[in-house]
Design a protein around this nucleic acid. Structure first.
Length: 893
DNA sequence: AAAACGCATGGTA
DNA sequence: GTACCATGCGTTT
C-alpha cells in the first residue's frame, strides 16, 4: 500500500495490486485526506462490507459478538463500523447492538451511538498506513450496556491508557492532546463541531460479515491490544464528540459531559445510531470533520459535515418499523425537506451534496448510476443518482422520483428520509408529512405556537391514504408525539430560517391562511405569561409584547338565538363546533375540554350544538379557514404553519388580500426568484440580512406593518428614554414634524438618513400627520437578527405599484388602512384622514415612486430602510426599518 | 408544442 | 467570501 493512493496505478489493497480501472473507486479515507482508490473488485468488497473477510481473514483481532457470537474483527479499521464496544468488555456486532438499541430504547443510548468516530481515529493512528472509512459504515461504534450506562470510564483513565494502546506514532500525542482538551473544555465550538460531525456519521450496521481484518493496521497485532485500543478510542471518542447539539446529545461520560454541557433529559432524543465517519487524522484535529463512514467521496471536499437540517431524526418506532420483522437494522442517513422542485413534476430530487457524497455511491460521471431505493412499504424504486456540474462543484439529484413522491403523497415541505437497511444494504426512503416533520423539528421546542390546528391530529389525519399510521410518516414518530404532548416546547426557528418557515406551509395550510388583515389581527393573541406594555401613540393605545404574538384559534362570529353575539369554535380533537361567548379569546389550539363556558359541552363526546346545515350557513361568513376546516376536518387537519410576529402578520395580511396561492402542484418551499410584479410575501420581503430593499414608496403591507410597529416601538423607547424627550416627540408627532430621538442603544430599531447619514446616530422620524405612514430615514445601523425591510433600488421597477399586477398593493393598503382606521375610531376617534388609503396616498405623495434626491424627502421617507449597505443607490434614500422579530405588539382599541 | 434535460443564476447559510 | 442548493430558463428531444 502506498501512502498516495491516487498516485499508484494499482489497487490500494495491498493484497490485491490489481490495476485500477480508469475511474478507480474510492475507498476509505487516508491520512492525507484523500481516499484510497480501489479496483472494482476490492471496492465492492469494501462497499459490501466484505473487505476484511475477503482479504484479511488471517489477520489477528477477531472477536465474537457477545450477543450472537458472530465473529467480528475488532482490530481492523475497516470493520470498525461493524461492532460496538460494550462497557463490560467485549463487543457486540452492530446488528445486535441495533436490536438492543431498538429494544431498550434507552434515551441515553442514542448518545452513545455516536461514540464511534474517535475509535476510528484511534484506529487510524494505530494503523500506520491508513485509517479507513468503510463505505456505508462508520467508525467503531461504542455503546454502553444499558445497565452500565453510568459507569463510563473516567476520562482520566482513558487518557492514561491511551498511550499504552496506541503505538508511538506521532499522531498519538496529538490525539491525546486534542482529546484532553476536548474533554476538559467542551467548549461550545467543539460542541458545534461535534454536532455537525455527528450528522455525518453513518451508522453502519451491518456488515455482518464477521471476519474482518484491518487491511492496513499493522499496528494492531493481536486481539487484546486492538480490543483495548478500541475501547479507549471509543471512550475518548465519545467524550470528544459528546458536545453535540441538543438534538443529538451524545452520551458519553454522564458524569462529566452532561453536566458540562448542561444537557437535559428533554434534549435527549432517541436517534438512530449513526456510524460516524471520522477523520482519523490526528494532525488535523480541527479538520477531521469528514465523513468517515461515508461512502467514498467523489471529492474529498465533500467531507464536511451535514447541515443539521439534513440530520435524520428517527425515533425508535421509525427505526423499528423500517427494520420491521426482518431483523434488519436500519441506519438513518439523512433526510430532506422537499422543495417545490423536489416535489414537482420534474421528478428531480436535489440531494444535499454532502449527503449524496456520504451515503450514496460515488459517481464520477454526471450520468451517475441507477439507484435502487425501497420505500417504507417495501416497494422498490429505481432512481437515477447523478449530478450536474455546478460552480466547480456538483449538484446531486435523484431523478425519476415523481412516482415515488406521488406514491407517498408527498408535497413540498414534507420530508423524505433516507436510511440504509442492514445487512441488506438497501437504501430505504421514508417520509414524514410536513405536519409530522414540523413536530420533529420542534422536538426540542414548544409547539405552543401552533396556529390553531392540532399538531397531534395531524399525524393521524394527515394522510388520507391507506398508509398505516406508521406508514404515513414513513415510519412514524409516536414518541415524538408523546414528547410534544408532554413537554411544552418553544418553537424556534432553529436551523430553519424564515425560508424554512415558509417551507412548512403546505397548500392546505396556505389556503387556510387566507384570512383578512382584520381577521389576522383578530387571531392574534398575546404570548402567554407576558404582560403587555401599553403605549400611547397619537392617542391610541397599543399593547406591546416583547414576544411575538401567537395566532389564536379562528372562530366564527355569529349571533345567537337570543340575539346575543357569540362565536363558534371548532375543537381540535373532535372537530365539533362549540359556542362561546363573543369575547372569548382562544389559544391557537382549543379543545372541548377547554370549554369552560359550557361545561356540558366540555367533552368531545358531547353532541354538537350546531347542525351541519347551520354550520354550513355560518361558513360563508367565516373565513376560508373555518370553511375549509369544516370540509377537511375529518380528513386532514394539518397544522397551519405557525408564523410569528411580523411574518405572521405580513403573511396573513398578504394572503388575506387575495394573493393567489400556489396550487398543490405549485406548493413551494422556497420561493422562486423574485419576480417583477410579484407581490407575494416572499417577493415583497427582503431576505434576511441583506435582501432586497423595499422601494421607498413601498406601501406594501409588510412595510406598513413594519412601519406601524416600528413607530410604536420607537415611541416606547422614546418614552422610556426621557419624559421630556417623549413629550417633545409626541408633540412633534402630532404636528407632523420631524422627530429626533436618540438611536436605540440596542440597535433594535434604527434608521437613518441614507442620503446624509447622521454620524450622531440620531433617528429622525417623520410622521405623516395621522396617517399610517411613518416617514423615516436612517443612518447606517447594524441590525442583528431582525426583520428588516430594505429599499432595493435595483428592484424598484419590480416593486413599483405600477408593476404590481392587479392592485395587490391597493388591496393591501386598503386592508391595512381599514384596520388602522378601525382601530382609531374605536379608540379615540382621532382625526383620521378621510382618505380611504392613507398609505397609498402617502405613497403617491412620496413622488409617485420616484427616487428622492437625497433621501430627505419626507414623503418618501415613509419607506423604512435598514442597512447601511443600501447606500448603493445614489438618490434613493434607503431608509431601513428593522424590527426585532421577537418584539411584537397588538393594537388595542 | 410539450417534456425533459442540464447548466446558470442568485438567494441563503 | 464561499459553498450550497432551489429553481429559472435555454436547449434538446
Amino acid at each position: 500500500m502506498s501512502s498516495s493512493s491516487s498516485a499508484s496505478k494499482v489497487c490500494y489493497n495491498s493484497e490485491c495490486k490489481e490495476v485500477k480501472s480508469e475511474f478507480p473507486r474510492k475507498g476509505w479515507r487516508l491520512r492525507t485526506g484523500e481516499y484510497c482508490e480501489l479496483c472494482d473488485r476490492c471496492y465492492f468488497a469494501y462497499e459490501e462490507g466484505r473487505f476484511c473477510e475477503t482479504f484479511h481473514m488471517n489477520a489477528a483481532g477477531w472477536r465474537c459478538c457477545e450477543s450472537c457470537g458472530k465473529r467480528v474483527h475488532c482490530g481492523c479499521i475497516v470493520s470498525s463500523h461493524a461492532f460496538t464496544l460494550l462497557d463490560p468488555g467485549g463487543i457486540e456486532c452492530m446488528t445486535c447492538a441495533r436490536k438492543n438499541y431498538v429494544m431498550t430504547s434507552n434515551p441515553a443510548w442514542p448518545t452513545s451511538m455516536f461514540f464511534h468516530s474517535p475509535l476510528s481515529e484511534r484506529l487510524k493512528d494505530l494503523s500506520t498506513k491508513n485509517w479507513t472509512q468503510l463505505a456505508g459504515s462508520g467508525p467503531v461504534p461504542w455503546r454502553q450496556a444499558p445497565s452500565l450506562f453510568n459507569s463510563s470510564i473516567p476520562s482520566s483513565e482513558l487518557h492514561t491508557r491511551v498511550p499504552h494502546e496506541v503505538d508511538g506514532s506521532t499522531g498519538i500525542n496529538k490525539l491525546n492532546a486534542s482529546e484532553r482538551i476536548f474533554v476538559s473544555t467542551l467548549e461550545k465550538k467543539k460542541v458545534e463541531e461535534f454536532s455537525e460531525r455527528l450528522m455525518k456519521v453513518n451508522l453502519s450496521i451491518g456488515t455482518q460479515q464477521s471476519l474482518e481484518n484491518g487491511i492496513g493496521n499493522p499496528g494492531i497485532n493481536h486481539e487484546e491490544k486492538s480490543s483495548s485500543c478500541l475501547n479507549i478510542s471509543q471512550q475518548s471518542a465519545s467524550l470528544k464528540e459528546e458536545p453535540s447539539t441538543p438534538q443529538f446529545v451524545p452520551y458519553g461520560s454522564p458524569s462529566e459531559t452532561n453536566p458540562q454541557l448542561g444537557f437535559t433529559g428533554t434534549n435527549l432524543r432517541p436517534i438512530a445510531p449513526l456510524a460516524k465517519n471520522y477523520n482519523g487524522n490526528g494532525v488535523e484535529s480541527s479538520g477531521d470533520n469528514q465523513i468517515r463512514n461515508a461512502r467514498p467521496r467523489v471529492d474529498a471536499r465533500g467531507r464536511n459535515q451535514l447541515l443539521p437540517r439534513y440530520w435524520p431524526r428517527f425515533t425508535d418506532q421509525e427505526l423499528q418499523h423500517i427494520s420491521g420483522d426482518k431483523n434488519s437494522v436500519i441506519t438513518p442517513l439523512f433526510e430532506k425537506m422537499l422543495s417545490a422542485s423536489d416535489a414537482g413534476r420534474i421528478g428531480r430530487l436535489v440531494l444535499p451534496k454532502k449527503c449524496a457524497e456520504a451515503y450514496f455511491p460515488p459517481i464520477s460521471q454526471p450520468e451517475g448510476l441507477p439507484l435502487k431505493v425501497q420505500d417504507s412499504k417495501g416497494k422498490e424504486w429505481i432512481f437515477q443518482f447523478r449530478f450536474w456540474p455546478n460552480n466547480n462543484s456538483r449538484m446531486y439529484v435523484l431523478e425519476g422520483v415523481t412516482p415515488c413522491i406521488q406514491s407517498m403523497q408527498l408535497l413540498a415541505g414534507d420530508i423524505v428520509t433516507f436510511s440504509r437497511l442492514e445487512p441488506e444494504g438497501k437504501l430505504v426512503m421514508g417520509f414524514r408529512k410536513a405536519s409530522t416533520s414540523l413536530q420533529s423539528d420542534q422536538e426540542n421546542e414548544a409547539n405552543k405556537t401552533t396556529n390553531g390546528v392540532s399538531a397531534h391530529a395531524e399525524v393521524e389525519l394527515a394522510d388520507p391514504s391507506s398508509w398505516s399510521n406508521v406508514d404515513k410518516s414513513g415510519y412514524i414518530a409516536k414518541e415524538a408525539l408523546e414528547d410534544k404532548s408532554l413537554i411544552p416546547k418553544k418553537r424556534k426557528n432553529s436551523n430553519l430560517g424564515s425560508k424554512s418557515k415558509r417551507l412548512r406551509i403546505e397548500n392546505e395550510d396556505v389556503i387556510e391562511l387566507k384570512v383578512t388583515w382584520e381577521e389576522a389581527q383578530g387571531l392574534l393573541r398575546p404570548p402567554a405569561n407576558h404582560v403587555p406594555t401599553v403605549v400611547v401613540i397619537e392617542g391610541f393605545e397599543f399593547e406591546e409584547y416583547e414576544d411575538a404574538p401567537i395566532l389564536g384559534k379562528p372562530t366564527i362570529y355569529a349571533t345567537g338565538r337570543a340575539g346575543e353575539k357569540i362565536q363558534w369554535v371548532q375543537c381540535e380533537d373532535c372537530f365539533k363546533w362549540r359556542k362561546l361567548p363573543i369575547n372569548a379569546l382562544l389559544p391557537s389550539k382549543w379543545t372541548c375540554s377547554e370549554n369552560s363556558w359550557d361545561p356540558e359541552r366540555s367533552l368531545c363526546s358531547a353532541a354538537q350544538e350546531l347542525t351541519t346545515e347551520q354550520l354550513q350557513d355560518l361558513l360563508p361568513r367565516c373565513n376560508t379557514v373555518a370553511s375549509k376546516k369544516l370540509k377537511a376536518a375529518k380528513q386532514d387537519p394539518d397544522n397551519i404553519e405557525v408564523l410569528e410576529g411580523l411574518d405572521t402578520l405580513a403573511n396573513l395580511a398578504i394572503l388575506g388580500e387575495g394573493e393567489s396561492l400556489p396550487s398543490s402542484a405549485q406548493a413551494t418551499t422556497k420561493h422562486p426568484r423574485h419576480r417583477p410584479g410579484c407581490s407575494c410575501i416572499v417577493c415583497i420581503q427582503p431576505p434576511s440580512g441583506k435582501g432586497p430593499k423595499h422601494k421607498q414608496t413601498c406601501t406594501c403591507n409588510v412595510c406598513l406593518t413594519v412601519k406601524r410597529r416600528f413607530r410604536t416601538l420607537m415611541m416606547r423607547r422614546e418614552k422610556k428614554q426621557s419624559d421630556k424627550e417623549a413629550e417633545t416627540t409626541r408633540r412633534k408627532q402630532h404636528k407632523g414634524q420631524l422627530l429626533v430621538v436618540d438611536k436605540p442603544e440596542d440597535d433594535t430599531l434604527s434608521y437613518c438618513n441614507a442620503g446624509s447619514s447622521s454620524p450622531n446616530q440620531k433617528i429622525e422620524i417623520l410622521e405623516l400627520s395621522d396617517d399610517d405612514l411613518n416617514m423615516t430615514k436612517s443612518s447606517t445601523s447594524p441590525f442583528k437578527g431582525q426583520i428588516d425591510l430594505n429599499i432595493q433600488p435595483e428592484r424598484e421597477d419590480e416593486l413599483s405599484p405600477g408593476s404590481d399586477s392587479g392592485g395587490m398593493m391597493k388591496l393591501l393598503h386598503d386592508a391595512t388602512a381599514r384596520y388602522l382606521r378601525q382601530q382609531r375610531l374605536s379608540s379615540s376617534g382621532g382625526s383620521e384622514k378621510s382618505s380611504g388609503n392613507g398609505s397609498q396616498r402617502a405613497a403617491s405623495e412620496a413622488g409617485g415612486g420616484e427616487p428622492l434626491s437625497n433621501g430627505v424627502n419626507l414623503e418618501s421617507s415613509n419607506v423604512v430602510n435598514l442597512e447601511s449597505s443600501n447606500h448603493d443607490s445614489s438618490n434613493d434614500c434607503p431608509a431601513t426599518l428593522s424590527i426585532k422579530p421577537s418584539a411584537s405588539m397588538t393594537a388595542t382599541g
